[in-house]
Amino acid sequence: MCSKIEFFLSYYNDLHPGIARELYSLRRKTFLERLEWKVECLGGYEKDKFDNSDTIYLLGMSEGKLLCGARFIDTRYPTMISEVFHEYFEDLVLPIDIPCCEISRLFLDKQRRDDGNLRGVAVSKALFLAMIIYCLKKGYKGMYAIVSRGMYAIFRQANWKVEVLRKGVSEKGEAIYYIFMPANENIIEEIISKDRNNIWLRGMHRQLQGLTLSDIQ
């Protein structure tokens, strides 16, 4: 049974105020407090100029609480890759000849996962499937992102064969990667088939076919 976790898509302008507060609070907890990234925070929230009307959020909920999420921006619009990360890489450019997007602020709150008795459930892989399905429905070939060594390893362990385009060094002196994350049905099958609890993941895959947003045709 594919219960306990549901995924939703929302435009920035349509995000419920309560969910928005929860999202930006969890992002602060993840990116500022745990990872100690150089991020913009005001009060108890992490939010920046890329949280705007061009943004679409993917949100994973469990029993009414936000559990995980990610931020999509079509590469036709300003992104962190085009406007922020160039200082950490040489010749950093996003392609303009294929339909694609940037994904950023990808997180999973492990404390909420464990408190919700979801330890051992492939929550991160379900999030990956949701990301891929979003891209497929939008007609994107995939996603571009800047990730840490640890996040890159998680993608590889999930059997997602992402492509490293550039290597750089963060403000903390740590290795970071500019990657392309392909989105297709073969990738979905490779992620599902490798997981020991693949029956649950297949059920999530079926559930995720209903992931919708008003502009997805």
Rank of each mutant, 00 (worst) to 15 (best):
L15N: 01
L15G: 12
H16G: 07
H16M: 04
P17H: 10
P17C: 13
G18T: 14
G18K: 14
A20R: 14
A20F: 04
A20K: 10
E22A: 05
L23I: 07
Y24A: 05
S25Q: 06
S25N: 08
L26G: 09
R27C: 12
R27W: 03
R27N: 07
R27A: 08
R28F: 02
K29M: 02
K29L: 06
K29R: 11
K29E: 09
F31W: 02
F31H: 03
F31G: 05
L32M: 11
L32V: 13
E33Q: 04
E36D: 10
W37M: 13
W37D: 13
W37H: 11
K38H: 08
K38P: 12
K38C: 15
K38A: 10
V39I: 09
V39N: 00
V39F: 05
E40F: 06
E40Q: 09
C41H: 05
L42V: 12
L42P: 12
L42T: 13
G43A: 05
G43M: 13
G43N: 07
G43L: 05
G44C: 11
G44H: 00
G44M: 00
Y45M: 14
E46G: 03
E46W: 02
E46L: 02
E46A: 00
K47L: 12
D48C: 05
D48N: 04
D48M: 04
F50R: 10
F50E: 05
D51M: 06
D51P: 06
N52L: 10
N52Y: 02
S53F: 14
S53N: 13
S53V: 14
